[in-house]
């Protein structure tokens, strides 16, 4: 029972890390970044390359973030920028971008599945059960991501501009906020967060060119259900992630994999604002 609870919490932590980048992009730009999965992959391969070059693990995560942010900034300038008025087309174009990144990664690294050694190995004893230390560490990672994220949003000038753009873009522009720059930075940070999450999940899953895709749907659904705030995203991750673990454990793992998607679709049908203002 305790193991299930730990699974639920650590799964929620992973989901939160993975979907936070999608959330900030959706919040500011009202578009869904279908290339998110590709940026997760970019982060994972950045970590892989870093590890092969012998970089210490502490450096791998920032390297992955930087790689993702750079790709994101490039994508924003060349593609996404032109599609803010056409959100459905933005989905398609970012999906195309996802294909391109995935194929480039395949051309460079091949299709094989690769592995990265976890920095923290073994198990730790927690309340009488042995549990994977790395998964426990993910709870801490999620908290750090969430804290840094809200500190950026609430404590910096850029965060203030970002919140202004989220609330009322026209007004923000009128008050001298450079919304194009806010969008560029937001998209870069969102992609960076995707890459960072990719680096963090590498020790738990294998690394292959399409590794991001299975996470994508869950991340979308969580962001849609959360209605745009980090707090509700954390709540949705915990509730739906927990549900997923419960269904996987007690019913069947395949159904478990569908839990988030189905539950979120039904929640949104019944309550279009999702968990927001709950």
């Amino acid at each position: 029972m305790l193991i299930v609870a730990l699974d639920a919490v650590t799964t929620a932590a992973l989901l939160l890390i993975i979907s936070s980048g999608l959330l900030i992009v959706f919040g500011v730009m009202k578009i869904i970044n279908f290339a998110h999965a590709a940026f997760i992959t970019v982060g994972a391969y950045a970590a892989l390359v870093g590890a092969r070059l012998g970089l210490p693990w502490v450096l791998l995560v920032p390297v992955a973030f930087a790689a993702g942010a750079a790709c994101g900034a490039l994508a924003e300038v060349t593609i996404v920028r032109r599609l803010y008025q056409r959100p459905l087309d933005a989905i398609l174009a970012t999906w195309g971008l996802g294909i391109v990144i995935g194929q480039i990664v395949t051309l460079i690294f091949g299709r094989e599945v690769q592995f990265v050694q976890a920095p923290i190995t073994g198990t730790i004893e927690l309340l009488g059960v042995d549990y994977s230390a790395y998964r426990i560490a993910m709870i801490g990672a999620a908290l750090v991501v969430a804290l840094v994220f809200s500190a950026l949003l609430n404590g910096t000038r850029l965060g203030l501009s970002t919140r202004a753009v989220i609330m009322n873009e026209m007004l923000a522009q009128g008050l001298g906020v450079d919304s194009a720059r806010v969008r560029l930075v937001t998209f870069a940070i969102g992609s960076g967060l995707a890459a960072l999450s990719g680096a963090l999940i590498t020790p738990l899953s294998s690394v292959d060119p399409n590794m991001g895709v299975p996470w994508l749907i869950s991340a979308f659904m969580l962001v849609m259900v959360s209605g745009g705030s980090l707090l509700t995203l954390a709540v949705s991750s915990l509730v739906l992630g927990g549900l997923q673990v419960i269904v996987s454990t007690f019913v069947n793992p395949i159904l478990g994999g569908l839990t988030i998607a189905i539950c979120a679709a039904v929640v949104l049908r019944v309550r279009p604002e999702g968990f927001a203002r709950a």
């Binding site: 174009a93 294909i99 391109v100 480039i104």
Partner: peptide
């Protein structure tokens, strides 16, 4: 696949 992705964009 790469060509298809680029063509789509």
């Amino acid at each position: 696949e790469l060509i298809i992705g680029i063509a789509l964009i």
